Simulated assay, not measured.
Amino acid sequence: MIQHSDYKEATIQGRYVTMDKLQQHCFTKLKSETIIIGFSVLGVPIPAFTLGHGKQKVLMWSQMHGNESTTTKAVWDMVNFLNSPNEMAKTILESCTLMIVPMLNPDGAKAYTRVNHNEVDLNRDAKNLSQPESVALRTLFQKFKPDFCFNLHDQRTLFSAGKTNKPATVSFLSPASNMERDITPSREVAMKLIAAMNQTLQKMIPGQVGRFDDGFNDNCVGDSFQMEKVPTLLFEAGHFQKDYEREKTREFLFYSLLEALQTIAADKISNYSIDDYFAIPENDKLFFDIIVENPQVTNPIIMDTDRVGIRYKEVLYGDKIHFEPEVAEVGALEGFYAHQTIEGADLLDFDNDPAKQAIRAILSSINE
């Protein structure tokens, strides 16, 4: 049994992962030669490297959105595994050639923003190719000619796995390649690979895997690569209970990556069906980080019957991400769930708890 803890890259943890950290701690240990595929808006080199020598070519990239770092951590855990003497690692490297871009948007990563330095969302620039990072990825895609693409992201804590009280800890999507959302051969292959990963994850986090909406947008990179008839998979790292640093979620992404690569290497994609893919519940937006029951504040905006839904805003201070509570919605909030529930009476006794003090303060100040 493979244990993630045996391969976890301990030098990168938490939510704030930058190119400087990767260069200092991770690239120095690589056995593979790195190439520079381009430069960011601020002139930061964007490195990539290959592992393996097999005929099945897999292109994967992470941190296209700079503040989405969980999959970057999982990728380095995967690299550690593939560089080990494990028999599965050897099989994958004999059957596959991986081209890995661990951080496509280094400027956004340093600023901890979704967009690049020009405030452009790189995942909405596949058509225009207006940004140097977008051009770098597209050029690499054309040169490498992958058989599979893994598009690695994070998703917000608000997502539920369907209309349930379970968070979407990991989500997937086989993007559409046209407005009709036809199930093309490449899209079908991606669906079956996702079904393989879901089967593994259900043993670890039952009911906590979601499927993203497949509305077509040719400005999105996944859709555009699917249009090129290359099976493309969107990975989304989400929330696991009490895991705001996403150290547990990275473990599930690690196992997902290994399952996908093993399925490709063993030529077992046909063992799965698109029905297994569509059985994964579509994501919904039913979670707040906190719901305050019976808020008990002197504020005419908040009624006695109301609940207050709070979501965290992620703010960078120094080299640490802080989670600052913000009121997202006030009302009955029927059908919604929370990662944490607080009784309003508990807020009356601060207990020197900064989080409770902050929540009390924002409840009291709503529309004052």
Rank of each mutant, 00 (worst) to 15 (best):
T305K: 13
G66Y: 04
V115A: 12
A266V: 04
M1T: 14
F235G: 00
E9G: 00
T91S: 12
G66W: 02
E334G: 10
G38A: 11
H117R: 12
N219A: 11
A190Y: 00
F235Q: 01
S62T: 14
A10L: 14
E343S: 13
S130Q: 14
S256H: 09
S186M: 03
P85C: 10
K31Q: 15
P167T: 12
K192S: 04
F159T: 08
F150M: 14
D213V: 11
L158M: 14
K145C: 11
G14L: 06
E259Y: 01
K127I: 00
L253D: 11
R138P: 00
G309E: 09
Y277W: 07
A74E: 07
G38D: 08
Y112I: 07
E119I: 06
L348W: 14
Y7D: 11
N198S: 14
F216K: 07
G52I: 03
E133D: 09
P354C: 02
T97L: 09
K110E: 15
D218R: 12
G207K: 05
K242Y: 10
Q23C: 09
A195N: 04
K229H: 10
L234N: 03
S95N: 15
I359C: 03
R307V: 06
G309W: 03
H322N: 10
S32W: 00
A136D: 06
E368C: 05
K110Q: 15
M197R: 12
N299I: 08
